[in-house]
């Protein structure tokens, strides 16, 4: 980098020196001529006062090296001035038609493009934000719903299990009661049967023992005695 720069500077200086030498030698070539003119000028100065108009007018015919004023004469400058107007107007018209609108359009289009891009990016961001919000909202809602459902299910289950339990208990109770009743009736039947059997048995035993016709009063008395005996025997 530095070497490139220094090489460039060296090149620049060399070129400048070269051009200075060329210019200098060119001027040196003119020098003799100019020296002569200087002497001539001196003699003029010595001869008579310098003519300012002469000095100002540089447009003497052909190869006259008279000193020009910085501001040329009207004859020197008029056409150049008119040329400047004409040339500038041509430049103005062509640039106004073909260059500035094109550059302006290019810049405007670029600006519009950038503006549009920024706007659409902002819009997209807004959309994404909205979508995210909506998603989060629906997620929260779903969560709430799930919780609700879970709770409902729990309640339902509780209710169902309670029902089941109640029903089972009732059934159980009914079944117990029925069994009790059956036992009771079976017991009663068995007792009745035993009672009848014992009566018959006692009667036959008594008739055998007494070998006589027992009156119905006696028979009744005997039965009751036998039953009382049987009852005490079964209870003991």
């Amino acid at each position: 980098m530095l070497t490139t720069l220094s090489r460039r500077v060296a090149l620049l200086l060399t070129l400048a020196m070269l051009s200075a030498i060329i210019t200098g030698s060119a001027m040196a070539q003119d020098h003799e001529k100019l020296k002569e003119e200087g002497e001539q000028f001196l003699s003029e100065v010595e001869g008579n006062a310098p003519d300012p108009e002469h000095a100002a007018q540089g447009e003497h015919a052909g190869g006259d090296h008279d000193v020009h004023g910085v501001i040329g004469t009207v004859k020197q400058g008029l056409v150049t001035g008119i040329t400047a107007i004409v040339v500038f107007l041509i430049v103005l018209v062509i640039l106004s038609k073909a260059v500035w609108p094109k550059i302006q359009a290019g810049l405007d289009e670029r600006e519009k493009k950038i503006r549009d891009e920024i706007e659409s990016a902002e819009e997209a961001r807004q959309q994404a934000k909205d979508a995210l919000e909506m998603y989060e909202k629906s997620l929260a809602q779903a969560r709430t719903e799930a919780q609700q459902m879970l709770e409902d299910a729990k309640v339902e289950q509780q209710k169902f299990s309670n029902e089941l339990r109640t029903k089972a208990e009732a059934e159980q109770a009914a079944r117990n009661e029925k069994a009790q009743r059956e036992i009771e009736s079976a017991k009663r039947a068995a007792v009745n049967e035993v009672y009848a059997e014992a009566a018959t048995l006692a009667t036959s035993i008594a008739s055998k023992i007494l070998s006589r016709e027992v009156s119905s009063d006696d028979q009744m008395q005997l039965i009751e005695e036998a039953v009382a005996e049987l009852g005490s025997a079964s209870h003991s």
Partner: peptide, 27 residues
């Protein structure tokens, strides 16, 4: 005196190229 003649201004003023009746048509 020579410097007065080798006027630096003479180097920076306009140079004529084609004149007509004293008017500088192309400079």
């Amino acid at each position: 005196l020579v410097m007065a003649k080798i006027d630096p201004v003479s180097h920076v003023v306009n140079h004529q190229f084609w004149t007509y009746d004293g008017f500088w048509i192309w400079s």
